[in-house]
Design a protein around this nucleic acid. Structure first.
Lengths: 231, 231
DNA sequence: GACATTAGTGGCTGTTTGTTACTAATTCGC
DNA sequence: GCGAATTAGTAACAAACAGCCACTAATGTC
């Protein structure tokens, strides 16, 4: 019979260095893009995620907000943790542990700070291994939660056309959706409401503008889907 | 026009204390239960989550594995991060930052260590505020990801009846499911395969045992669901 | 052997979804 | 001015799916 262990003594509490690494995502030119910061001369990689150590008594999301505001001029309204990273992978500031946080900003947000640049997710420059892992996790989290969290709406301005919304979903999911089905499902969800404004974008029929306005939850949800992500 | 900020100087890197807090979940007596450890005399609360500081160069999941093994006698096969907690809430070891990790163990796992006890999720004793937040997040993560991650199968032994499986889903989702619909959806998902064993559990017809054996992903997934969690 | 109990399936019905095809309102080229 | 191109939005049908009910099957209990 196996010996029943007893509760362990706590090891001596170690002090570790902590970083908050922010993945700022925004749709740019038909692709999801990440905001990167030019690294100081002499660094091993030329680009890094915006990051910093949290201040004393500063929450992680608060730190992410401060870090993002410094490179973007304004703080995004939406943050979500994507995980803690403490593997052996190298961090630009040699932090022992990184908290990865994804921030979503609408397409036409303000111009970023000097020494920053948007890179499409599929054409990133070389990053420190830790930062590459954080970016990959952030993208994967965004893809997996797009229908459980109002992620898509944070990538759009406060009013948007349904075609805009569909494009963002397609960007996040990485596949095309059918227009009629998309709209039907959206209608049934009571997530948006029409405004009385219309937008004419060059040629073609003008589109009605909608805003994100989730109504009270509809009744009990139904059966299980068994949609395992077996990637 | 808004002034374009420049990239901030990194603040002096602070050293913080870090804890890995593990939420060990298992189905016990018709409810999901958490494994708690009796706190040393003099502590403010009588019970805590199993936790410890990660060792030098130890990954977070490795730490969770070590911590769980110490209280359970064997390491569960499944861990998932549920988030980092750095709010002002008090931690039993006064760690600045906690990484919450959920571990899933099957129902009839080994007897826990002395000074530990299973508590149903809805009848927890008083915990340090940080620990309460970690438990709540863990439960919520488990509920939200049950159909995207093979969570349910980690709460069952390697072979199980379909009624067992359905019960675990009902436990995680907090609502009843319909037997025929559940089985149809499961069949279509190719997640389990029958063994040639049967189990007779007291009265009633014996049930066939199945094992978790996910087959290659079926073709492209379909439409969007807009299932926002508006809790 | 009747009955209670649990496992498992067949089939009907209404709902949701994929798809095609259409109508509507605009710009562009001439 | 007018048709072609372009984008927005909808109708309608068929297939797939989910909720539901009722049934059969195999065991233990009395």
């Amino acid at each position: 019979m196996r010996e029943r262990p007893s509760v362990p003594m706590k090891s001596a509490v170690r002090r570790t260095t902590l970083a908050v690494d922010v993945v700022v995502l925004s749709p740019r030119a038909e692709a999801l893009a990440v905001l990167l910061v030019r690294a100081p001369a002499g660094a091993r990689e030329r680009w890094t995620l915006p990051w910093d150590a949290p201040q004393q008594n500063e929450g992680l999301e608060d730190a992410a907000s401060r870090i993002t505001e410094a490179v973007l001029g304004s703080a995004p309204a939406f943050f979500e943790q994507v995980g803690a990273f403490a593997d052996g992978k190298r961090h630009p500031g040699d932090a022992d542990v990184s908290i990865g946080i994804v921030a979503l900003v609408p397409a036409r947000a303000e111009a970023p700070a000097t020494d920053t640049e948007w890179f499409p997710l599929n054409a990133l420059p070389t990053l420190a291994p830790r930062h590459r892992a954080v970016v990959e996790r952030a993208a994967s989290v965004a893809r997996q939660r797009v229908d459980q969290s109002p992620l898509a709406f944070r990538l759009l301005p406060s009013t948007f056309t349904l075609s805009d919304l569909q494009s963002v979903y397609e960007l996040l999911l990485g596949r095309r959706l059918h227009k009629a089905s998309f709209r039907r499902a959206l209608q049934a969800s009571y997530l948006v409401e029409p405004t009385d404004e219309w937008r004419s974008e060059g040629r073609g029929r003008p589109a009605q503008l909608f805003r994100f306005a989730p109504k009270k939850r509809r009744g009990a949800r139904r059966g299980v889907r068994f949609d395992l992500f077996t990637e």
